[in-house]
Design a binder for these strands. Structure first.
Length: 263
DNA sequence: ATGGCCAATATGATTGGA
């Protein structure tokens, strides 16, 4: 079972790249972020033609998350608990059945939070508190559970080429990192870090300032695994070569392989 | 000198991203 996450920065601008990458990596489940369209505008036929079931939680112009799955969805639920007034499309949860039992997957797009001296940062921190509460509840189910997406969190200095450049940024400020640690301290495993100690494990390079050319990247897209998923962890990786393609997203896909029969 | 981009919008300037 291969599960991937990718912030595509507009699904409609990235369709060609997505189809090329799906053919190459052949994931069973894909968590997408920043689709930047309403549900009706999502090009679902392109993915259904490849055998994927499609679930979309879209919004006009910004944000928007989606799930592609070769296994049928048993349940799909948009939105993160804890604030009924939150209208931003950043969270989509689904349950699928495998030969050996259920698998729970979330595609999330955690708020950026910049600039930090504004309500944008308080929204980010509250959103993270809600995510911690949600995860605590789901972990009680003791299921294989993958919480994947664009976290907009640089967990440690080793996750940035130039950590000093990020010290005052919402992605790296201590309250942000504290909450990410609170999340992993619940018992969730950062899949990429579980299989590699290396630097250069970046998932985002800014379009500006020649960041890609200088490999001035950060690792902010993560797959967190429940104990029942982490016990089956076989591999994890980052498809950084996709950043080199024409019309790239500023993020690249990240994937995990679990020893779970997919079909 | 610490820069340079990209996407969506009742668009041609503004907002958001990170």
């Amino acid at each position: 079972m291969r599960i991937a996450t990718w912030n595509v920065n507009s699904i409609r601008q990235r369709l060609d790249n997505m189809l090329a990458w799906l053919k190459e990596r052949d994931p069973d489940i894909v968590c997408l972020q920043e689709i930047k369209c309403v549900n009706e505008a999502f090009p679902r036929e392109a993915f259904e033609g490849l055998g994927y079931n499609v679930a979309v939680h879209g919004q006009k112009a910004f944000n928007g998350v989606a799930l592609l799955s070769k296994l049928p969805f048993d349940e799909v639920a948009p939105g993160l608990i804890g604030d009924d007034g939150d209208v931003q499309a950043r969270f989509l949860e689904a349950l699928v059945s495998t030969k050996t039992g259920v698998l729970r997957v979330v595609s999330l797009y955690l708020p950026n939070g910049n600039p930090p001296d504004t309500e944008k940062y308080t929204y980010k921190l509250k959103w993270m508190d809600r995510l911690i509460a949600f995860s605590r509840e789901r972990l009680k189910l003791e299921e294989p559970f993958v919480l994947a997406g664009d976290y907009n969190v640089i967990p440690t200095a080793a996750d940035a080429r130039n950590p000093a450049a990020w010290t005052k940024d919402a992605l790296f400020l201590p309250p942000t990192r504290e909450r990410f640690r609170a999340l992993t301290n619940l018992g969730l495993t950062d899949a990429v870090r579980a299989v590699s100690d290396g630097r250069d494990l970046y998932t985002f390079w800014d379009y500006q300032a020649g960041a890609w050319a200088k490999d001035d990247g950060i690792r902010i897209d993560h797959l967190l695994l429940s104990p029942q998923a982490a016990d089956r962890l076989a591999d994890a990786g980052i498809d950084r070569h996709v950043r080199e393609w024409d019309k790239p997203s500023d993020h690249v896909p990240v994937y995990v392989d679990l020893d779970i029969e997919s079909r």
